[in-house]
């Protein structure tokens, strides 16, 4: 496979994009999971689908949009969706989780309408649903890289604040942290990373890379930093292992990546159980 990677540009694109996503998705995922927002990624990925369908429809009907990467429209929808979620969370103060199904079904509804207007599914759209190695272009790769560098810089610079916001929002407010703007910055990062990573894992599975590695590492890690590093490690193993397996066994890459992440989760659960049964106080 190594020689194939050197030979085919699409394989290079897929592996490089996968390596970046394997790190960046779990990094944001840690903050998402501990803030109990796990479903937000699902909601936003469906909104992104609506954006991509809209872009494909426009490129069919207007010369202006031909050749424009649908991922940009997907990102615009995703960011707009994240702002709606924030708005809904303040409107329904006592039912904050309601924002997620509202945005999720709205996204699917809109997406289905655009798809039907564009005369149904074509292979292009199909690759967005389940991810496709061959669909990742050089341009996608650059987009993902730029977004990821931006996200990593923001997280490093605002690490203290993001930690406090996640751990104890009320205390953050009381000490005078700008909680609202911080949350705003955070959710926009989530929206961008989701839109950028769909090419590899697909819309239906993108949230899994934000939650499954975190779910595994939270079981066995000590401290927040260790949780972050373990999540990124598990994410990276899933992506690289999944892409390799899917290449040799001719499987869907998105599905293979997710199933590897599930496998890692199961292993951590079993090893935690074993270590607490046989002597160890904790792992």
């Amino acid at each position: 496979m190594i020689s194939a990677i050197f030979q085919y540009e699409f394989l290079q694109n897929a592996f490089l994009a996968g390596m970046i996503i394997g790190v960046i998705a779990p990094l944001l995922g840690v903050f998402i999971v501990v803030r109990r927002l796990s479903l937000i990624a699902d909601a936003l990925s469906h909104v992104t689908l609506a954006g991509i369908a809209a872009s494909l429809l426009l490129s069919k009907n207007s010369a202006l949009f031909v050749g424009v990467n649908p991922i940009y429209m997907g990102m615009a929808f995703s960011v707009a969706g994240s702002l709606f979620i924030e708005k809904l969370r303040t409107v329904y103060k006592h039912y904050q989780e309601l924002a997620i199904p509202i945005i999720l079904s709205g996204g699917i509804g809109l997406g289905v309408i655009f798809i039907s207007l564009a005369d149904g599914f074509n292979t292009d759209l199909f690759s967005y649903l389940f991810g496709s190695v061959s669909a990742v272009t050089r341009l996608d790769l650059w987009t993902i890289l730029l977004i990821s560098i931006g996200v990593i810089i923001v997280i490093i610079l605002l690490y203290k604040e993001l930690f406090l916001l996640s751990f104890d929002e009320e205390y953050a407010k009381a000490t005078g942290i700008a909680v609202k703007s911080l949350h705003f910055v955070f959710i926009i990062m989530v929206a961008l990373v989701i839109a950028a990573s769909m090419r590899i894992v697909g819309i239906l599975l993108v949230s899994s890379l934000m939650t499954l590695p975190v779910a595994a590492s939270i079981r066995i890690s000590r401290g927040f930093k260790q949780t972050i590093f373990l999540s990124m490690l598990f994410g990276e193993i899933s992506v690289l292992g999944g892409l390799t397996l899917s290449y040799y066994l001719n499987l869907a890459p998105g599905g293979t990546i997710v199933m590897l992440a599930v496998l890692i989760l199961i292993v951590t659960m079993v090893s935690k159980k074993l270590s607490s049964q046989f002597g160890g106080v904790r792992v």
């Binding site: 610079l157 203290k160 930690f163 406090l164 751990f167 205390y171 005078g176 949780t227």
Partner: peptide, 26 residues
């Protein structure tokens, strides 16, 4: 009131978060 007991943070990390505002951003 405002704390998730399953939160994966060490005692050191929690106490250090008390310096967030005093230290300032970045």
């Amino acid at each position: 009131n405002s704390f998730n007991t399953g939160f994966p943070a060490t005692v050191f990390e929690v106490v250090a978060s008390g310096l967030t505002k005093k230290l300032g951003m970045f």
